[in-house]
Design a protein around this nucleic acid. Structure first.
Lengths: 187, 187, 187, 187
DNA sequence: ACTAGCGGGACGACCCGTTTGT
DNA sequence: ACAAACGGGTCGTCCCGCTAGT
């Protein structure tokens, strides 16, 4: 059924697909190993527990996003920020979109001290730093407050793209530029 | 264990508390009926299935929000909008805050056609209409696009208040007024 | 929903319909009282237990058959026997036919000492006596052995009409007359 | 408790014993796995559902009968037919006899399209074909009608052996020869 | 290192027949 | 006549460990 990749990779790929599409608690270990074509002992050889696999799934998602961010188009920080939100819009329009994997996973793991939640927190901290660095590189006058708004905007867009209809790229770009341009007037 | 209220109410109250705090799939009916002090047959007399109870839980949440919105302070539509987002901020700072019940529930029910997802959609449509009506009452020049941003802002704030630290009321008010005031320049 | 008849009759009618169509164990008391429009207390007022209702169901079936047998057409015992088997054929061709109620009930109550099995045994003894009396009235030379064959034929016809296709009236009459006419030759 | 045979075989053997002795709906999977000394997960590894096991039980019963029929004593078709009915008589006299497994199972599964009913239908079609082939081999002048009577006789004998007393081998043989010899007179 | 299968025990949702209060 | 309570039972799935074989 599958042979070219390593068992661990097949496990992780299958888990990624199923966890994202159907939710973590809705997918059992048996189903994952079956669809990955891997023995159960092998599973527990690579992952100490199911939660470990969930964590690995989120870390892999985060790594992918970080890799994408490293190759972000745009010469200026300002352009890079716009590119980030453009990709948010694209993501929300992909046919199998099912919301933000981190937000969804957090919804199923209420305890903030749980390792899965730590992975979520790590990812969010990375993203916040990424945006903050870009704002500072762009010499934004109020980077600390603007990053909050941009993060909130990103989360809201990802939620809305799943639960409502999603915004056009133009509308998103307008919103971002508005936020970026309006920093000085307020208290 | 419990006596003053009707079994159905106790069931719904207990379910609300547990579903919100620990997630829907993580809470079994046995636990709910045990903590509500109700027999299992009584449970299935009032709710045909567990999903039915989940639906009732979300509908009750929505009803509560609608009731609160009906008594919103503020004389002008503009003030009412600010009051809405002020309550969003308050909500996010409450000690037991665990994110938006509707977003969390949607994360556990991937199928958009599921009754639970319908309840989520209903609530979101109501909130969108509420904001849109206020924008139009305020004669906002671009209500249709602004409502999208405000809804996204609300979702993002609710997500961030759970997963990050949450914004101050002042920062929220600034963001809202910025969005409200920036409507004419764009297409 | 139903009012003209007494609660007990409605209970028995509903139970008869459901037990026969879906099997005894597959139908719960809740469903019976619901479809009969009767309170549960009323049910347990008229029938001490569910098995009691099952017994009453079979007794009513037996009574109905006895009443029909009392008005059997045919002037001679021979004709009456033919009429009995003709009605067996008719029964097997009725659209909602689902096998012999007594055989079906016995399949769900393995213990021969159970009251339900007693009701089955009573009915079968009655039918055997009926046929035996007719054979003796007809001065059949070997009534004791012939009654066994006729009872077996009846059971086999009722089983086959449910599980296979069922025989024509002509084929049934031929079989009965053959059995009736062949008594002397054998040991 | 059990070790020599494979789990699947132990499951099937235990189910066969319990289903036949007590009825399908009266025996739960918990009891089967307990008496078979098998884990529940193993059960659901071999049988997708309980109904699947019921089907397997009936298929195994059918296979056993087919194997027995393949080694039927008797040189002529006529003798083979007599041997079939002799074994029916023997079966009915065995101490744990509880009726025909197929008739009993059908009584608990009202829906003719259910897989269990299909297994019953398959078995009955096989038996009918077996008898029909023997009749034709014996150059019986009216095989098509005679097979119906023999099938009905078999069913009736099996029912009666459970619910009444059962016939002697001699009486059964007389009945069969009577049916076989009486074919020409009628239409 | 990987496979295949089995054991284990707790828990999932849901329904059972029965009794009691109101 | 309704609603509730009760305890146990239904089938099915959960995650995890272990053994034996390759």
């Amino acid at each position: 059924m599958a042979s070219t990749t390593s068992p661990r990779d097949r496990l992780l790929q299958t888990a990624t697909r199923l966890f994202y599409a159907e939710g973590v608690h809705a997918v059992g270990v048996d189903r994952i190993i079956l669809e990955a074509g891997v023995a159960k002992a092998t599973f527990y050889h690579h992952f100490r527990t199911k939660d470990d696999l969930v964590r690995a799934y989120l870390c892999a998602q985060s790594d992918a996003q970080r890799a994408k961010a490293a190759e972000l188009p745009g010469s200026s920080p300002h352009e890079k920020l716009l590119a980030i939100f453009e990709s948010v819009g694209e993501l929300g329009r992909s046919p199998d979109y099912r919301g933000c994997p981190f937000v969804n996973a957090a919804a199923e793991f209420p305890d903030p001290r749980h390792p899965v939640r730590q992975a979520v927190a790590d990812h969010r901290m990375w993203f916040r730093s990424l945006v903050l660095d870009l704002l500072r590189s762009a010499k934004h006058p109020d980077a600390d407050r603007t990053v909050e708004l941009l993060v909130a905007l990103k989360d809201g867009l990802l939620v809305g793209a799943d639960l409502d209809h999603g915004l056009t790229n133009a509308a998103i770009r307008d919103a971002v530029t508005t936020i970026l341009d309006t920093a000085t007037a307020k208290r």
